[in-house]
Write a protein that binds this DNA or RNA. Structure first.
Lengths: 150, 150
DNA sequence: CAATTACATTTGTATATACAAATATTGTAA
DNA sequence: TTACAATATTTGTATATACAAATGTAATTG
């Protein structure tokens, strides 16, 4: 299905507008697929993303602002996102001893364990999403995307 | 800023995962810029999108399921989105006389008028987002994006 | 034509997100 | 050392979104 079919328009869309709509459609589709893949784990993409960041810390605790900076979708309430992960037992939060304004957030062994299982379905989904692309094409795509400001 | 800088990771990201993160980052950034551009009009991107669809109908009313099918981000509550546009006086809703299960939604002249002003800032924003790209590159990008299922 | 199924939208409820204001802590400068 | 500014997080509130159930209408079928 191409862009025009998807949004059911007969009029020609200017190239710039079409490009932006195209990216949005692709991103929404990817989001949807990842959300479905994570659904059995009862976790949102953002929560998954935070768990991955925490694992990447290799035991070194992260504080809220660090998480916020590193998240793919920066959202305005990382506190409550972390609250939910704590409720699930996937992370722990302590106030930072050296600077009591900060908090230190760590992934628990339960969190690591669940994350390992999520990795499988997410990797599989990522592969499915991109299975039409050759390695060369993926590199081309990344090169083009590099021109966007992030 | 590249992907690794943006998410502040030192580890190398596998090409597939990197591509998906890349698209997400770009899409989030575009969303943010468009939302800021539309902010003065006190309207969300989705609401703007619906107004554009209605204008494209050229007077022919649209019903909810049509809107839902054509929206870039399909969302699960087009009723309430339309409610908000009605509240602002940008659209009208009547039950369809030929099939009273359906509703007929039209853009008002006030809606058309506002939309015209929004077009300006949105077009300007779109151009800003894509100003690094040559026409050839935009075409290349669209060709690559075509390989995604929508 | 009564009962059932399908269709189109709306409503209820839970959760998510955005934004601003509040709180708590630390750093700094007169 | 007190007052003020800067930093980090949390909380309040409004709005947005997802999902399921409910409502109302039309079509179908025995």
């Amino acid at each position: 299905m191409n862009v025009e079919e998807r949004i059911k328009t007969s009029e020609e869309i200017p190239l710039e507008r079409r490009t932006i709509i195209h990216i949005m459609l692709v991103a929404n589709n990817i989001n949807e697929k990842l959300a479905i893949a994570l659904k059995p784990f009862d976790i949102s993409i953002q929560q998954f993303n935070v768990l991955r960041i925490l694992r990447g810390q290799n035991g070194k605790p992260a504080n809220l602002s660090t998480l916020n900076k590193r998240m793919v979708s920066k959202m305005s309430n990382t506190t409550r996102l972390v609250d939910k992960l704590i409720l699930k037992g996937y992370v722990e939060r302590h106030t930072c001893p050296s600077n009591r304004r900060k908090v230190e957030i760590n992934i628990t062994s339960k969190g690591l364990d669940r994350l390992l299982k999520m990795d499988d379905v997410v990797s599989k989904t990522e592969t499915e999403i991109l299975d039409q692309f050759s390695e060369y094409e993926l590199k081309q795509l990344n090169l083009l995307l590099n021109q966007f400001k992030l």
